[in-house]
């Protein structure tokens, strides 16, 4: 019994993290049709910024509780700066190119960012563990869980709701939807597509950085953390359906629970459970769980 409770809880914790790292990716793809490999680097930059700022914050001796605000601030700063620089500096010259070529563009950006991170922060790890312990532990049937993990769950839920609400209930969101459905028509109707792109990319980058910033307290922030995230986020997003926010949530839940089940019941398969799910889902739903099939153009 305890094992099954643990599977559900561990699965939810992991799913929240997966959702946080993949929601920005699916948003950017949905609007801009760019599968952003540099997403992992943005996650890493968010984590590094958060770790540096949290470290400075605590050595200055301010109120510990507000360190969560520092995490959010770090994500906003990192996402805004990197998002603007990448979109304005590189991507905007590439719009209209083939989707696959865009993958390569973001791959190049990824390579550059990975080394830039090394140049800025060096290779020694950074820690931001203070916020992690602050919320204490909760016992679930004798099994201790970190309070911070529940905070992450809440954050993931809020982020999902926030993104959904902004897309479906705000004017900007409606513009976004228009661009997603038909870019050319939107342009003709007077939508400033370039601006929509800039805004989307900055928001996507900020979401990636947010994922990194809130993961930072749990991990050691070292070179290479971004690479690991990319493929995971890809898998989640492809399972859910590229470009679908709800899909990313379901994909994260599916992968999270299955992986937790594997760890508890069948540790041998943990390594490829995620790819097996991805291949299986694609075999039966070629466009992922939640994406509408596209009409074939003549």
């Amino acid at each position: 019994m305890l094992t099954y409770v643990a599977i559900v809880l561990d699965g939810l914790v992991y799913a929240s993290w997966l959702f946080m790292v993949s929601v920005g990716l699916t948003l950017i793809y949905g609007v801009m049709k760019i599968l952003n490999i540099a997403h992992g680097s943005l996650y890493a930059i968010g984590a590094y910024t958060a770790a540096s700022l949290v470290g400075a914050y605590f050595s200055a001796g301010y109120v510990p509780v507000l360190s969560f605000a520092v995490l959010v601030g770090a994500a906003l700063a990192a996402g805004l700066v990197c998002g603007l620089v990448i979109e304005r500096g590189v991507l905007r010259f590439m719009y209209g190119q083939d989707e696959v070529l865009m993958i390569l563009v973001t791959y190049a950006i990824f390579l550059i960012l990975e080394d830039l991170i090394k140049v800025f922060w060096g290779v020694s790890p950074y820690f931001a563990f203070q916020p992690y312990g602050m919320l204490g532990n909760f016992d679930v049937m004798g099994l201790p869980y970190a309070g911070y993990d529940f905070l992450l769950m809440g954050l993931a839920g809020l982020t999902g709701l926030g993104v959904w609400w902004s897309i479906n209930r705000t004017r900007t969101g409606h513009l976004l939807t228009a661009v997603i459905h038909d870019r050319e028509m939107s342009t003709a109707m007077g939508v400033n597509v370039k601006r929509v792109y800039t805004v989307t990319f900055v928001i996507g980058a900020t979401l990636a950085a947010l994922g990194g910033a809130f993961t930072a307290p749990k991990i050691s922030v070292t070179p290479g953390i971004g690479v690991e995230v990319i493929v995971l986020a890809f898998a989640v997003v492809v399972i859910g359906g590229l470009g679908s926010i709800g899909g990313a949530m379901i994909g994260a839940l599916l992968v999270g629970i299955l992986r937790a089940a594997a760890v508890h019941l069948l540790p041998e398969v943990e390594l490829f459970v995620i790819y097996a799910v991805m291949a299986l889902v694609l075999a039966f739903r070629p466009y992922g769980l939640f994406a509408a099939p596209e009409a074939r153009k003549i």
Binding site: E99, V100, V231, A235, E268, L271, F272, Y275, L282, Y287
Partner: peptide, 23 residues
């Protein structure tokens, strides 16, 4: 499959082989 789905499915398959070999 076509386009990005062809790319992603082939990526998933190669990662499954990777996982098997690591085990």
């Amino acid at each position: 499959y076509r386009e990005i789905f062809y790319a992603m499915l082939s990526l998933a398959l190669s990662m499954i082989l990777y996982g098997l070999l690591v085990r």
